[in-house]
Design a protein around this nucleic acid. Structure first.
Lengths: 160, 160
DNA sequence: CGAGTAAGTTGGATTTTCCAACTGACTTGT
DNA sequence: ACAAGTCAGTTGGAAAATCCAACTTACTCG
């Protein structure tokens, strides 16, 4: 019952998971990124394949663009038309999609037939997440809180 | 004017990513699971640490319970009080949280100081996602669509 | 010319979320 | 004993986000 550091107001935990969700956690954002990572780059097809309302999708794509996750590439001048492409940052969302697909195909066991995913080697999706440092697999519970880190934490990759 | 045969509307892509998001993609769901995986199991603390409204959080926890991701464990009879714990399914959400935290700490480079994560070996969070079959690392773009799969796909793990 | 494609935009209905206060059943402090 | 605090919710009303179908603009194709 004794907490050594009792702050006046318990603010929500500011962590990188919460920060990531601010960008990727809005409705349709991850599905839009899924489409782009599958090679679908045009508005109408992204809207159709995700099921998102067109107006909401416009907003989401603008947000993702402003966050540097995707970029608009003009493919027609008259009328101006753009394709949506992943930036380096956006391409690196793949592990999240992979983990999500793997969890879902393991635990969502209902009748519905769904598109599955596989690795490019041809095998069914069975991702193993391991620590780059020690090589050990991440087991549930081996994720620990680290120190508070701001921008200067490590080397900032530049986009493009 | 236009009321032609607009029937064969392409349905949204039914895939395991979308299915996973139906369960885990609602607001606050992943943050609640984060708390449980960090050892926080009681309602008030989960509400405080996530920042979710209490009423919304109740709904979310009930949904996650009905989906078998968490379970309520009674710790007091009078008055009845419950703790929220991850099931096996819930514990296996960890790779998603890990990927999200890693992406975020790589790409969210602003001033805000945030709690970082690390592997239990002590190293900073640097997850590597590789294919269990061929051992090769998943690179962006090495995720491919597979065939449609329903419940009978592989062996169903049992929970609890 | 009329139909079709593409990327949006618009207005209004619906749904979800937010927020602060309240409740009930206890427990703890004085 | 009595007041205050804890805990896990519940409530009602306001605010925000989403949904939906139709509309718009600017082309291209037959």
């Amino acid at each position: 019952m004794n907490r050594p550091t009792d702050k006046a107001v318990d603010a929500p935990r500011a962590c990188f998971i919460a920060a990531g969700l601010d960008v990727l956690g809005e409705r349709w954002a991850l599905l839009a990124l899924r489409e782009m990572s599958l090679g679908v780059h045009r508005f109408d097809q992204i809207a159709r394949n995700t099921g998102a309302s067109r107006d909401i999708l416009v907003g989401r794509l603008r947000t993702l663009e402003s966050q540097g996750v995707i970029e608009r590439v003009q493919y027609s001048e008259r009328p101006p038309r753009y394709e949506y492409h992943l930036t380096t940052s956006g391409a690196e969302v793949a592990p999240i999609l992979i983990s999500l697909a793997a969890w879902s195909s393991t635990w969502m066991r209902d009748e519905t037939p769904r598109a599955s995913y596989r690795h490019s080697c041809g095998a069914d999706l069975k991702p193993v997440v391991s620590c780059a440092e020690c090589g050990e697999e991440f087991t549930p519970g081996s994720l620990m809180l680290g120190p508070l880190v701001s921008a200067a934490g490590t080397d900032p990759p530049s986009d493009q």
